[in-house]
Design a binder for these strands. Structure first.
Length: 507
RNA sequence: GCCGCGUUGGUCAAGGGGUUAAGACGCCUCCCUUUCACGGAGGAAUCACGGGUUCGAAUCCCGUACGUGGUACCA
């Protein structure tokens, strides 16, 4: 078999959502597993939906996820250009060839005429009539017009499209790598437009031509493309390229609360749907991404990989390299999967625990700095992160879990202390403060011993005192062992926090 | 409407004629921990429905229902 070449062909129309990233992932994994090439080709033939900046955004996302292409508009490659708008000249000749060979035809119908047709043929049973073998005989095209009429229209530069001429009563079938044998009745498929009036190809023509020219061996795309597969199959055949046709796989959809996962689902239920922050340049509306939400790319890739695929074992945590080694298309699920944000967070938690702090501390540092918390001592920072990583699900959780190591808590959970606060406890802390100031070896053991001994001496249960101490140092009922916190923040800071809190509690 | 594709706990799912129908997330209980987590031990919860085929069906076949995608000069 020739070298494996797969492509991801996004249209730059907005943020890169979960389904998109997973499609890239499966393409990428398959390519890398077989030592092949991963190509990214931009489908920007639709001028009206094109969104400025979306292309760069897509590449940023791929980079963040660790899926760098081998060929792309940015990198170039042997089959450049990789933007369909720049390949415009390629397509017309293939469309013309199809017309010449009798597999396609010119259609001169105006927008109004098409609308009229749809209106005229509309019935209760058929709410959306297609431009198919039965209606094409009644329309204005090179099948119904005489040769001279057609030539005349063409000479006059009348706006026209080229449509595929779907055969009648044929069954066309192919083998999908995930679903097996799939077949379609050609009479039921419409005469899809291949070349638009503006000279741009539609997706149908463009994928086939580009896949052929770029020597794509495997074509993986979302399940939403399944209904138009017969058009593509026929194009490969009609263009005479059948023996070079890639193998197909149609990936299951990622579902939201109902239907294909949408931006709305995310907004509604409070989870991201895009890989990275996306700001729509038209509306200026920001949609939060997984990256900014505090996800690790390792976790993001991992959770997407197993949403619709598994290797048959009980393993759930995989690195990119492991995925490359064991991924196989035939273990991809046929059914769509509903996205579960709780499980997504679990994956991130697992990765935070699994990875060494050094691999993400820069990201956490950025988050800290954006919250106005300065991080100066790298060794100290690492030590703190190491101490609290087990209790962080998202990278952003580090703020809540460890900001008190870097700055005095602004808000203390006074309400949890006050009801049980009394002079005995107050006096205990005053005495403890005195002892602390005399300690020379500031370590966990000395702090704890002094505390416990004093409690015994004062005849107060240590448990009664530990909670207030925690709130004094940390601000709330969370975080690592109290004495560990005291040890790390140091003598000065510990004493100062207790002193401040004492005043607060006694008011 | 028509066409395509699906359907195993709330979610992700293993299993593809004989299983006590794995496992994970979430939920609940307990242990550990004088906080919150981590960790550990348990628990509740599933084969869409109806017909076949078969000694035997979650598994094969056919219907039905439901879901989902398509039905654009969008991808």
């Amino acid at each position: 078999m020739s070298k494996v070449r797969v492509r991801f062909a996004p249209s730059p129309t907005g943020g890169l959502h979960l389904g998109g990233v997973r499609t890239v992932l499966y393409n990428y994994l398959f390519a890398k597993k077989h030592g092949g090439d991963f190509i990214v080709r931009i489908e920007d033939t639709d001028q009206t939906r094109f969104v400025a900046g979306a292309e760069d955004y897509i590449f940023d996302c791929l980079k963040w996820c660790g899926m760098e292409p081998d060929e792309s508009p940015l990198l170039g490659g042997p089959y450049a250009p990789y933007r369909q708008s720049e390949r415009k000249e390629n397509y017309r000749k293939y469309a013309e060839q199809l017309v010449k060979d009798g597999f396609a035809y010119y259609a001169f119908d105006t927008k109004e005429e098409l609308e009229k047709m749809r209106e005229d043929f509309k019935t209760a049973e058929n709410p959306s009539p297609q431009y198919d073998h039965s209606v094409r005989k009644k329309m204005k095209n090179s099948l119904t017009l005489t040769e001279t009429e057609v030539k005349d229209q063409l000479d006059k530069n009348t706006a026209h499209v080229i449509r595929i001429k779907m055969p009648e009563n044929e069954v066309i079938s192919f083998t999908d790598m995930i679903r097996g044998e799939i077949s379609f009745e050609t009479s039921l498929v419409d005469d899809k437009v291949l070349l638009k009036a503006d000279g741009m190809p539609t997706y149908h023509l463009a994928v086939v031509v580009d896949d052929y020219l770029m020597k794509i061996t495997h074509a993986f795309r979302g399940e939403e493309w399944l209904p138009s597969a017969p058009v593509h199959l026929l194009l490969w055949k009609y263009l005479g390229w059948q023996k070079d046709m890639p193998q197909w796989a149609h990936l299951p959809l990622i579902l939201g609360t109902n239907g294909k996962l949408s931006k709305r689902d995310g907004a509604k239920y409070g989870f991201p749907v895009f890989a990275m922050n996306w700001t729509d340049p038209k509306t200026n509306e920001l949609t939060e991404g997984f990256k900014e939400k505090g996800f690790l790319p390792e976790a993001f890739i991992n959770l997407l990989a197993v949403l619709g695929w598994n290797d048959g074992t009980e393993q759930e945590i995989y690195s990119m390299q492991e995925l490359i080694d064991i991924f196989s298309m035939d273990r991809v699920h046929v059914a769509g999967a509903k996205f579960d944000y709780e499980k997504a967070k679990w994956f991130n938690h697992e990765w935070i625990k699994k990875l060494e702090v050094k691999s993400y501390k820069l990201k956490v540092k950025e988050i800290f700095e954006s919250k106005g918390i300065a991080v100066n001592n790298d060794a100290y920072f690492t030590k703190v992160l190491e101490l609290v990583k087990d209790r962080c699900t998202l990278l952003t959780d580090f703020v809540q879990q460890s900001s008190f190591f870097f700055k005095t808590p602004e808000q203390l959970d006074v309400d949890s202390v006050k009801p049980k606060w009394n002079d005995e406890k107050k006096n205990f802390f005053i005495d403890y403060l005195k002892q602390l100031s005399r300690i020379d070896t500031w370590d966990l053991v000395s702090l704890e011993t002094a505390f416990k001994n004093l409690a015994v001496e004062k005849n107060i249960k240590p448990g009664e005192l530990l909670a207030p101490l925690r709130i004094m140092l940390v601000g709330g009922k969370f975080g690592p062992a109290v004495f560990q916190v005291a040890e790390l923040i140091g003598k000065q800071e510990t004493i100062s926090r207790i002193e401040k809190a004492l005043i607060l509690f006694s008011n």
